[in-house]
Design a protein around this nucleic acid. Structure first.
Lengths: 143, 143
DNA sequence: TTATTATTGATAATAATATTCATTATAGAG
DNA sequence: CTCTATAATGAATATTATTATCAATAATAA
């Protein structure tokens, strides 16, 4: 989703939950929206520190959690890596190719796999809500 | 894989790496092999404590890690749950259905999904080594 | 303008796992 | 068998990431 849409989704969520629109919250939101696609809480905190050294670590965590709840971000926890927060792209769900050498993520999508997953779940009397597919291996740069 | 095969795989690994076959190591191995299919380090430790209270937590962790390296166990980290160690079944790789209400795992497999995953990776110039597919939702007991 | 209460920053707490280190025990050499 | 090098252990401590606590502050709605 675009920046405007993300801002609106987030502020709608804030209003709906009767939370408050603080300057720290705005700044953390903007820092997140202008960050790379997969960022750790720590790296986001560091970026924010440069401009606004008065904003604390806990506040960044709290607001990342809020952004996830609002639907504009998603927490991705892979193996022993620390959590990364990803910008949600409403246009398309995707899976991840994860390089076991350099750790980089690549986003991919396959409609047929998606459909088969739903069928697989239903065959097992399971109501699927969401899923995560991670394929580990070597990316083109690391072979 | 069967118990004997797992024991052999592990002891071969120990020998190859010029490590040592201690009594603690044997006991932790046996406790793991006779445990339920997905067990946390803590629960395994508790089980071991009943019989051998002199074995320490760190030793259990160290040996679980070794078992993973040797290929008879796999560490599975899902969301905020603590890591679970799973017996590797050489006969068949599988994916997980994970109930978001009760937290239980269900093991499933679909050959067509497996094949499509390999193709998806290759299409992206990526050499797949292993993968993890987790489908979250509600199991039959929790709907 | 004021009252309510969400939010903040600093700090402490927590939880899981890893590391340190002195002591013990194993495997291989002789 | 004995000796020696060093892997392994247990206890305690450290680390790492994330959360909770709490007094002070600030946003919202009346």
């Amino acid at each position: 989703m675009g920046l405007k849409e993300a801002r609106k989704t987030f502020s709608d969520y804030i209003r709906k939950k009767e939370l408050r629109n603080t300057t720290q919250r705005q700044r953390i939101l903007e820092a997140f929206l202008s960050s790379e696609r997969h960022i750790t809480a720590e790296d986001l905190y560091k970026n924010i520190q440069k401009k606004y050294p008065e904003i604390g670590f806990a506040t960044v965590y709290r607001n990342l959690k809020l952004m996830c709840e609002s639907g504009i971000a998603e927490e991705i926890k892979i193996g022993n890596q620390k959590s990364k927060y990803e910008h949600i792209d409403l246009k398309q769900h995707h899976d991840h190719l994860i390089c076991i050498k350099c750790g980089r993520f690549y986003e991919v999508f396959d409609e047929r796999i998606e459909n088969l997953q739903v069928k697989l779940a239903e065959k097992n009397d399971f109501l699927p809500v969401r899923h995560r597919l991670e394929i580990y291996g070597l990316c083109r740069n690391c072979r």
